[in-house]
Write a protein that binds this DNA or RNA. Sequence first.
RNA 1: GCCGACGUAGCUCAGCCGGUAGAGCAGCGGUUUCGUAAACCGCCGGUCGGCAGUUCGAGUCUGCCCGUCGGCUCCA
Length: 668
Amino acid sequence: MGPPRTADMSAATRRNAGGTAGARALVPEIRGRGPFCLDERRTAMAKTERKPDHGDEALYALRHSTAHVMAGAVLELFPDAKFGFGPPVADGFYYDFDLPRALTDEDLPRIEERMRAMAKRDVPFEHREMPVPEALDFFRERHQDYKVEQIEKLDKADEQVELRNGSVSIYEHADFVDLCRGPHVERTSKIGAFRLLSVAGAYWRGNERNPQLQRIYGTVWPTEKELNEYLEKLKEIERRDHRALGRDLELFRIDEELGSGLVLWLPNLSIVREELENWWRKVHRERGYTLVYTPHIAHEKIYQRSGHLEKYGENMYGPLLLDDSAGATGGQRPPARFWIKPMNCPGHIKVFQSKIHSYRELPLRIGELGTVYRYERGGTLHGMLRVRGFTQDDSHIFCSWDQAQAEIGKVFDLAMEFLQTFGYRDPRVYLSTRPERRLGTDEQWDKAEKALADALGVREVPYDVDEGGGVFYAPKIDIKVMDAIGREWQGPTIQIDLNLPERFDVTFVNEKGERERAVMIHRVLFGSLERFVGGLIEHFAGNFPLWLNWEQAAIIPVRESARPYAEELATALRGAGLRVHLDEQAGDLRTRIKEAQQRKASYMLVVGDKEAAARTVSVRRRGAAQGEEERGVKLDEVIARLANERDTKALPPDFGPHGPSVADSLGG
RNA sequence: GCCGACGUAGCUCAGCCGGUAGAGCAGCGGUUUCGUAAACCGCCGGUCGGCAGUUCGAGUCUGCCCGUCGGCUCCA
């Protein structure tokens, strides 16, 4: 049932490479995302969209030129091909084609072959300016509808950069002529080490009402060495795929009969989650949060008031019809309609409104690990990273404007502490300001943006401003981070909501005894536990830190004679609150070590007669190289070490870009 | 939702041009008591994703549906 996995690079690998997902060149990152209330699942720990990163000028020209050579090769194979866009993107390039038949993976080597031939011919890339009327005729003659459309659009836009004196810029090599502003490498022999990676559908101009073209993704590097390093990185990404590790390590399962997009947390991952949740609750209590529980379904009227039904209804599960009207009265009252909650905010507002609040009680920080369900279109689901049911670590802070900046600052500090705990690196902070279309007054936006900016300013946090990048109801701070192998993920988000407090008339009583509108701050650290943990699996390559690990120690007696001591050791470790697996099977020690490695036990504690006599342990770390085990460690010392590693939440020694993985040991 | 590919045992896969399913791993039962990543023998295990259709006969061909994968789109 599972997806095909092959030893070489699979399509899955290619897709994840350097965030190939959502690759879009020459287009700014999609902004203003996030739905109504804070959409934590998407705003936190989503792999971020690939940005237009073309590297330096030389790399840009290389990628761009290779795209042209590829297009030329496609034209040789398909004389009727029509061409869409073919830009460079991070790590490579793509080109969109309208072809008489669907491309298959077998076509890629054939195209590559012709590209190599073209590189060998070593023809120059020639640039010239073509007056618009001539260009239109030229491309019309060749039935290049998309190019014609593009020229017409450029002409209309009359952009100085694109149109120089009523001409368009043309590049050609051999018989391939393309509308293109360059620059290119001088000759086709310079296109370096390339590889075509995958074929996929893509809409013309990215609009789903337009025809769908076939997109070929490729990568190109100045040298073979760099190409190989890149392909190696793709393999590493595949090895870390949380779906594969999820199967191999018995972490989670998504069952078709149960429903796609719904995650079963298997026992191992449930331990990880329990530890995360316990820590989350502890940290939040320490920071003065009030933790609550709210219902999983709610009456229609609350979602009418919140606006979710109107704005988000298509994604909601329901309605559930509760027909309690057909009873004794035999009345014809319409049945009550309930919906499964897609977000936690309305419930938290109701918690806040359960009584009148004095300014003295503020800020009130209401938090919940709240499970929500949202209907997502089939094509968007992806392992634990994009699901239909998930638990958000949701919090809403109700305060006055005077308190807002300080509260935002505290959330920011907490967010940084979270990221640090898991070893995420190089946080980058973005402040997204008011978009064109928005709710609320300018005065409100001024205050909200200032509160966010000042919170960062006080901390002297460097940040980028994304003008107009806010959500329609809120400006926000986003934090993005790098994982262990340098992929960027979207992390915590903080927003000031300018909508719901109005809709629900959220107030408190101020010093003067007047009702005052409360400020409502949305924030998320994990986002959804499903997505966060799915991300952690990839970040750690399955090598979880000891504090989260389901098997903190495997105790392996060398022979039957060491069993009593092994049991004593197990009892002692369990007494210290550690999760221990006592290996009771007979057989080859090497096999049992291997199996413990595959289960990702943090430590293998081997005990034989020598250890039993000396009351010591042979300690082998997960991922240790041959002969790296440490012999003769005192029993108490072992317990103290493990407990310390757990209590400090230390990152494991095999954490990093090249930690061994299950795939390594199984790969043979 | 759209384009394309795919769906055979818990997992990874084989199964030609239609003739009623096969391996390794895992599991189970034995044997093996071994010093740091694969001991040996045996057994169990499949309505071939589902429903129709074509055919004497369908894992194999056709249609629809479900699901998965790669993208696109969506995610106010």
